[in-house]
Amino acid sequence: MSADHRPAPRRLGDAADRGWREDLARAGAVPAPGPGVLEDARSRLRQAAAAEAPGVHEDVVAERAAAERARSRRRRTAMVAVATAAAVLAAVLAVTAPWAVTTQRPDVVATGQGPVPVEDGGAASCAFAYSPDVLADQVTFAFDGTITRIDTGSLFESNRVTFEVTTWFRGPGADAPASITLPMSPAAPRTGADATTREDSRMLDTPGYTVGTRLLVAGAARFGGGPLEDPVVWGCDFTRYYDRPTAQQWAAALD
């Protein structure tokens, strides 16, 4: 391939932005990678793929997909409900107090600090069935820690959960911090009555948490790179309540 890859100006703002937008898009024209570059990437990837030990179970992958579909359905339902409520509210306000329409919005019920699932990244971690071998092979950070603070995220966003770390099993190395704050999912309970399918219930059967909960936490960097860069906490049995035998097992596996 040798054709230039010039980004078409994406719509960003109104007509007043068109000039600079097109100017900038023109400056972004670059030649496509040559066939040798692409072949090198493919070749190195094939080597990596061939070297990867099989550690993934198809049924777990299927569960992940099923649970993700269920989660998407719930999100869509929730968003439609919020949008509908907003529309109804706007309509009512338009009739009763037109001046208020632009500033009013429906309240969103905040998530309390009671036990909620460690779901964030759960979909990702369910790509792998838990075992000490997979743990050792896949996670980039793991520790034993106690929750000292939970900053609740807004709807569809993560909580920021702060841990006091007792033991680092893997992660930051020599300069390991004594505490760390990680994004973990907030929001609606997804176990028990709210779990709509068996797969959903099983996949999201992750430990609830609150301040004071002691967990064995495992996860990986979302985009690769450093062990704690854009960290994703893994659910699905990877992150679990602390118990001494498992902590010892982790220490041995992640040494």
């Binding site: 990837l45 793929a49 993700e68 989660r71 979909a123 979302r222």
Partner: peptide, 20 residues
């Protein structure tokens, strides 16, 4: 860096979260 990017993506694919 292209090959390096693909290798890193391959190694990290278990952390991809469709919800994000």
């Amino acid at each position: 860096l292209l090959a390096e990017t693909w290798l890193q993506a391959f190694a990290s694919r278990g952390s991809y979260d469709p919800g994000r």
